[in-house]
Simulated scan of single mutants.
Amino acid sequence: MMQDDLHDVKTSFFSSLVTLFASSSTLVCCAIPALLVSLGAGAALASLVAVFPQIVWISENKEIIFLFSTVLMVIGGIVQWRNRYAPCPVDLRLRQACLRTRKVSLGIYLFSLALLIIGGWFAFIQPLL
């Protein structure tokens, strides 16, 4: 496997993990608290805030969290797009690993995008309804 090919695969997978981390922060700030309250589990939310008081800070600064997450998602999307046809090694086993990693990376990215959209819905659109 050429060094550049290995670098592209690692970069793509790393970018998808970063976007997953970034988008999951939007769930913590907005979607999970809104879901708990809408299900009538306000006491569970209060217990969660008592254990993790940082949730309040994250919720108060949701605009910054979403801006940062969206920027990371755009960067991750660019890396995914750029690497979609990157060459894989000629060796059959390495080629299969390369293609599998590319599919997993895309799946993680799409899941992250879904989390960002869900978090955005609960943070910005749902309160307006």
Rank of each mutant, 00 (worst) to 15 (best):
F111A: 06
Q54A: 14
M2E: 13
E60W: 09
V74A: 15
E63S: 14
G77I: 05
S12Y: 06
L6N: 01
L129E: 08
V9S: 08
L92Q: 10
P127S: 04
L36E: 10
I118M: 01
L6H: 01
Q54W: 15
L48A: 13
V37L: 12
P127K: 08
F68I: 15
S23W: 08
A50S: 15
G76C: 08
S12D: 15
F124P: 04
A50W: 12
Y109S: 01
G120T: 03
S15Y: 13
S25H: 06
L36N: 02
D5W: 12
L106N: 08
L36M: 14
G76T: 10
I125Y: 13
I65K: 05
R93F: 11
R100K: 12
N61I: 09
T26E: 01
K62C: 13
T11R: 14
S24L: 08
P33F: 01
F122N: 04
A114D: 01
R100H: 02
A44E: 11
I125M: 07
F124Q: 01
A43T: 15
A50Q: 15
S23C: 11
L27E: 09
T19C: 14
G40V: 12
L116F: 09
A43N: 12
Q96I: 07
C29N: 05
E63G: 12
P127M: 06
W121G: 00
V37Q: 12
P89N: 00
P53I: 10
A43C: 05
L116N: 04
I118C: 00
L48R: 10
F68Y: 12
A34K: 11
L110C: 00
F66K: 02
A123V: 04
F124D: 00
F124K: 02
L94K: 08
S16F: 04
A123N: 01
I108H: 02
L35N: 01
A50K: 15
C98W: 05
S15D: 10
V49L: 08
S112E: 03
E60V: 07
L113Y: 05
G77E: 02
L113H: 04
E60Q: 15
L115P: 00
S59D: 09
A114P: 01
L106R: 10
A123H: 06
Y85V: 04
D5N: 14
M2C: 03
V49G: 07
C88L: 04
L128A: 11
L115Q: 03
V74W: 11
M73P: 07
S47E: 14
F13Y: 12
P53N: 05
L39K: 05
Y109T: 02
